[in-house]
Design a protein around this nucleic acid. Structure first.
Lengths: 158, 158
DNA sequence: TGACAAAGGTTTGGTATCAAACCAATATGG
DNA sequence: CCATATTGGTTTGATACCAAACCTTTGTCA
């Protein structure tokens, strides 16, 4: 995300503060994503891991369109990510029994194992971070961050 | 949210909370970035705007390596972004007078204008968001978020 | 039932991003 | 002063991502 709007007015506007918040969030995301992908096994990317993780946590047998919607990417992007997961043997894609347009995304045992392996690989990094970022701070931040996310989610321009 | 593999029934671990925080941040970034790029003029991307904005705020005449370091991208990425800004006529790139390896990135008047235009284009979106995200909440979040960013920044694996 | 709209998925073209390999220029140390 | 290390920048190859165009299938409704 971009940087704060103005140099430093004495009293930054509400909008400027929000801009700065989004900027910080952008940098955090970039740093976290890079660090995370460094430790992921099997050449998994964050996007690929996210699909595996979601399938384990919320159940598989979802359609690509459902996955795209919940993971906030376009269907075209999901097509590409699923293709790579399939090449790696971590998911199976089958036609939907009732809707001729749809497909179903199913985890393979290897996919489930790769997800577990990824969790283990990420743990040391997270553990190290918990040393510097107190638990109660994370607990305070979560609901606030979720509010911001919810707003963006509801107000995105289709 | 059912979570077969993890013992989530009781209290999520510090690490799990942090993971969730980073996940939310990733989604926010994606939504904010997409919304932002929608309104940017001249086909500017977030990355390109960030370079223009930084040059206005912190002064231009920086080297590509300096820009890459402060904006948290690789030098290769910066090479590409600068090339596109130059094609659009928003920056000039000149050789460094003293260091034969370096170059200098200079804003053109058109670049400065494009940055102002971008700020104006982004404002309605921010203004709308401020209605849903109270100022005091943003003010509380900022220092916390900055702490997380600072930790990630210091602990990124070179 | 037939025309049209909506939804699922894919493809294409363009940008961003990283890692890694590479070259040129400068800095360092013996 | 020369060999080596470091730094600045570029290039390549891969993935992610979006928007837009496209085709197929399903849903709507007159």
């Amino acid at each position: 995300m971009p940087e704060p709007a103005e140099p430093h007015a004495d009293k930054p506007s509400h909008e400027q503060l929000l801009f700065r918040l989004l900027t910080e969030i952008g940098i955090i995301n970039q740093l976290a994503e890079t660090a995370f992908e460094r430790v992921l096994p099997h050449g998994l990317t964050r996007a690929q891991f996210t699909v595996l993780n979601h399938s384990v946590r919320m159940g598989d047998n979802k359609t690509p369109a459902q996955l795209a919607a919940v993971l906030q990417v376009t269907r075209g992007t999901m097509t590409s990510t699923l293709a790579r997961l399939q090449e790696k043997g971590f998911i199976r894609i089958e036609p939907d029994a009732v809707d001729g347009r749809s497909k179903r995304v199913l985890l393979t045992p290897q996919g489930k194992a790769a997800r577990e392996e990824s969790m283990r690989a990420a743990f040391p990094f997270l553990e190290q971070a918990t040393g510097a970022i107190p638990r109660d701070m994370v607990e305070r931040m979560l609901p606030q961050i979720e509010l911001v996310r919810a707003w963006l989610d509801q107000n995105r321009l289709e």
